[in-house]
Amino acid sequence: MRWLVAIVYHPIMIIMIPVTLLLPLMMYSSAMNIVKFEIPVASAPFFGIAIISFLVYVATRSRFFGKPYRKITILLPLLQMCIYTSIAINIATVILNKWADEALYSKGWAIALALIGFVVIRLLMSLLYWKNPIVQREN
């Protein structure tokens, strides 16, 4: 049964890996377009990020499904970091979109709130990796 699931899982995962690695860059340029052109843009759907997160979770949870991806030891942690960064940028994009589309606040406030949102997520990410390092410290 798990071989049948693997036939579906692995092709999707192989496609998602480069997408996930490039996602923060794509979303960053999209967010910059909001500030530059003062128009709202379509933010990355959270559902897509949820799918990518789930695929990575399956790879970390199951030795069978995650075996090919553990060959490159940095891959799964890197994908996780890209996902967290993408979420941070997406939150910033949502905040900027609220200004561009509805003028809920001024442009200056929009940029400040977006930066704060991004920094908060990145700080939480740093805390997670400080408390649970990928490579154990010798002492």
Partner: peptide, 13 residues
């Protein structure tokens, strides 16, 4: 821990 947080991220997303 990392597995827990990536799973939680999927649910929150």
């Amino acid at each position: 821990k990392h597995r827990f947080w990536i799973g939680l991220t999927a649910i929150l997303a």
